[in-house]
Design a protein around this nucleic acid. Structure first.
Length: 552
RNA sequence: UGACCCUUGGUGUAAAGGUAGCACAACAGUUUUUGGUUCUGUUUGUCAAGGUUCGAAUCCUUGAGGGUCAACCA
């Protein structure tokens, strides 16, 4: 299974076998700087950079910045940060706007060869004349202008003589083509907009189909990989390169990533951000790369995920559980095990009064190099409220009035007495411990059904904890055009626990490091933390067969 | 009623005319001082109908279903 190639790799292998481009492989990742990168982009990033790695080629980072009204440098910065975090290094950092002069020359060439013309029609008229998928378009009355006339007009467009919307430059292809994209597509429009890189130098800007193919060509991209919705654009892509007889890049389309229980379109993600439904692009519930990072997903897990979902042309919806599998797989290897009690209930060890000792605890059973640390044990502890039951079902292995448990890294205890308030709620458990049952030197001979986590009440640190769940309750939130995807937002996607009890070693927790709160899940320190208040995000729960049993 | 593309278990993805495999999920068991991890096993599949062939997921025909395209977005 490790050795099979996806269809793009097959194409490259074939190209190399035929000696195309002397076997050179040059890819590019071409984001538009108008939003943050999401997991769908990470599929493309891993594909493009992965291909270059495998075939000893290079990958350019090229910002497709041809629409100044939606683009901004803050997006440029976040995109670069995300790619670097994913572990990839681009060859050159480039911008489509770097080519504006060259692209202008290409447009002039098209005009001179009669392959482009200036059209004065309104946008409504152009749409009208375009026809429909089943009705051929008709020629614009301006299509018959001479090259000299077109050149003059185009220069005037560039010079700012004509207002926005009054004129466009169109490729002269075929208004009757069954492919709508070939019906004389617009290649330049007038926009008196400030560009984040070229400033006010230009008032005309090229459109995607024109700019993208030629940018690929200028960079001598050998394999220009994009998503399926550009499949219909390929004949146009080829037309531009062929018509001007420039370097022939090859466009190859693959199916984008879809994840269930989430939306993956920049437009919708932007809506969530703008309407304050999430805290920002990097909200840990967002399927953005920055959100995943803040959530605690290791970069390696995203790379492994991208590798395993494969590359094909059929539409696909990946289950969230697959992503979570790779997150757990990675974190299981690297996360330091610590103890934290999320929903504390006090335990008094009645036969251990006024004592305290420090016990050795291993940091990661999966990693012998990870070492150990010391944790404090005392007469007053916190355990998880759900780890005690007065009347327990048969399959309940935790602490009950008649059932002993081991405290992880410490002693076996039994519960002797339950203290309740007037409302009948349990406020305290009085327990006794077995001195000879100390972890690692147990001579008690007592057998227990389970081991639970705990913290020493006097040594524990208070922290805030944010529990995340899927952002949407529907598998396909944007699947129904009648229903706004936002109506499916999961009201329980974020639960804040204001005061959890964590072991003292977590005082030195670092942002970007994964921790396993024993039996509770993987967590990471949130960047909102300060020296006095620690905030932990739950990255993902542990697999929980008990929870599954309970729900049945 | 146009053009282009797609269709393999619940979800993905392989099999280039020759044993339908792998991963996740689900289920059962094993191990375990985390109801985690590990390990083992089980269930479930070639859209349909014809054809070619000793042999078809694969090639051909027809049909069905799904996706994309009518922004001066990318």
């Amino acid at each position: 299974m490790e050795n099979h190639n996806n269809f793009i790799e097959e194409i490259i292998i074939e190209d190399q076998a035929m000696g195309k481009h002397d076997g050179r492989v040059q890819t590019r990742f071409p984001p538009e700087p108008n939003g943050f990168l999401h997991l769908g982009h990470s599929k493309s990033i891993c594909l493009n950079f992965g291909l270059a790695e495998r075939f000893e080629g290079k990958t350019n980072l090229r910002f497709d910045d041809t629409n100044p009204v939606t683009e901004d440098t803050i997006y440029v910065d976040s995109i670069k940060e995300d790619i670097a975090w994913l572990g990839y290094t681009w060859d050159k950092e480039l911008y489509a706007s770097d080519y504006f002069d060259q692209l202008y020359e290409y447009a002039v060439n098209l005009i001179q060869s009669g392959n482009a013309y200036v059209d004065d029609s309104t946008s409504e008229e152009i749409a009208q004349m375009k026809g429909t998928p089943t009705v051929p378009g008709v020629d614009s009355p301006y299509k018959s202008r001479t090259p000299a006339e077109n050149l003059q007009l185009f220069e005037e467009m560039r010079a700012g003589k004509w207002p926005e919307g009054s004129k466009v430059l169109r490729a002269n292809v075929d208004m009757k083509s069954p492919n709508m994209l070939l019906r004389d597509p617009i290649i330049y429009r007038i926009k008196f907009a400030h560009h984040h890189r070229t400033g006010d130098k230009w008032c005309i800007y090229p459109l995607y189909d024109f700019a993208h193919g030629y940018s690929d060509s200028i960079e001598h991209i050998t394999h220009s990989i994009c998503t399926l919705e550009f499949e219909n654009h390929r004949p146009l892509y080829d037309w531009f390169l062929e018509t001007l007889d420039v370097f022939r890049s090859r466009q190859i389309e693959f199916a984008r990533l879809n994840l269930n229980y989430t939306v993956m379109s920049k437009r919708k993600l932007l809506q969530l951000v703008n309407e304050g439904l999430v805290s920002g692009w990097d909200d840990p519930r967002m399927p953005t790369i920055s959100g995943a990072r803040r959530r605690g997903y290791p970069a390696a897990s995203i790379r492994n995920f991208a590798k395993h979902i494969g590359i094909a042309k059929r539409e696909n919806v990946i289950e969230l559980s697959l992503l979570e599998f790779f997150v757990r797989e990675e974190l299981n290897k690297i996360a330091t095990r610590v103890m934290a009690v999320l929903d504390p209930i006090k335990v008094i060890i009645t036969n251990y009064p006024n004592q305290e000792e420090w016990l050795e605890a291993e940091n990661n059973p999966e990693d012998s190099e990870a070492g150990t640390r010391m944790i404090p044990f005392s007469s007053t502890l916190f355990i998880e409220r759900e780890d005690f039951m007065e009347d327990a079902p048969k399959k309940y292995f935790r602490l009950t009035l008649g059932q002993k448990v081991r405290l992880k890294h410490a002693y076996i205890i039994q519960c002797d007495n339950v203290v309740k308030n007037e409302a009948g709620e349990i406020v305290e458990l009085h327990c006794t411990y077995f001195p000879e049952s100390k972890s690692g030197q147990d001579t008690s001979g007592i057998e227990v059904k389970s081991t639970i986590h705990w913290v020493s009440a006097n040594h524990a640190i208070d922290a805030q904890c944010r529990l995340y769940d899927r952002l949407f309750t529907a598998e396909d939130p944007d699947g129904n055009k009648e229903v706004d995807f936002k109506t499916y937002i999961n009201p329980e996607s974020l639960t804040v626990l204001e005061s959890i009890k964590i072991e003292p070693s977590l005082q030195n927790a670092q942002v970007g490091q994964g921790y396993q709160f024993l039996r509770k899940g993987y967590f990471c320190l949130d960047k909102d933390s300060t020296g006095v208040s620690l905030i932990f995000n739950r990255t993902v729960t542990l697999k929980d067969t008990w929870a599954k049993l309970k729900s049945q």
